[in-house]
Amino acid sequence: MIEISGHNIIIALTIHYVDEPMLLKVRFHGRGGHGVKTASRILGEAAFNEGLYAQDSPIYGAERRGAPVAAFTRISDEEILERGFIFDPDIVVVMDETLLNDWSAKPLDGLKPGGIAFVNTTANSQLYDYGETIRENLVIYDLTGLALKIIGKPIISTPSAAAASKITGIISESSLIDAVTSELSEIGVGDDVIENNIILAREVFRSIPETPPSTKLSDSKRELIPLEVVISYPGYEDIVSVGNSPLRKTGNWRVFKPIVDFSRCTACGVCFVYCPDAAITLRSDGKPEIDYDNCKGCLICYRECPPRAISIEREVRVW
């Protein structure tokens, strides 16, 4: 483990591509609102600026803030004959460490042997058990902390793209910065915010070492099954075990946690009325109780509280 500007960074040792011709597949995992799609676009544009072929795309369902989102960037020195979901990435960029435990997101799934996993995490947080194959090729950095410091918001499209660009070892800082400028302009971001994002991108790009993956094509084959097996399962899309939404806890979507100072709370009930997720109930004394298992950290209560009795605190892991 190498200490770089206060962050623990573990570096892969080999720097070359085994596949010929080069096709580099990067998969981003984050949550709605992180800037996952924009991250994949900045990386795609940066590669395109380098004169390479690039392709970027997001995948998402019913869009909402906080829900798991994935996006993909393919980079090649020849025409790209792939589309859609990347099953076997060379690099995964995990923009929210809580997704590592999410069975539907499965961010490390299919990472090729020798591939690089980047995880956005605070250096002082306890590391997850990433598994043997990942631990050797892991790069970690607190992108959210740096984003909060420089742009004041936990939006990490730019630093995630900067991290991925640097890891590839084939994208220059100037191509990255051009891409940050053009992509953020296109979605209507103001000049001053773009300036701060450029500072953020440079900081990340310069802090993270080049760690190109040295991946091999995986030998594992996905098994196909005949129609007979598929249709031996129930064929109606009925949900008979209704009322199971509470099983899907949404509290780990938070970046900031609202905390009530009961000595200042006047039991006015404004937070209760405004909470869009019914995550606030009122106790018998009329003061709020926040359901942290499901509070998504939208902070509307914090903004609306008339006596300013709600404060916020950055959270790293909820569970």
Partner: peptide, 22 residues
């Protein structure tokens, strides 16, 4: 030939269990 994979069916098993149909 109807294309379908084992890993997809494994995911469907999990979803059907959540739905309560298996």
């Amino acid at each position: 030939l109807f294309l379908f994979r084992r890993d997809e069916l494994t995911h469907i098993e999990r979803v059907l269990k959540l739905a309560g149909t298996i």
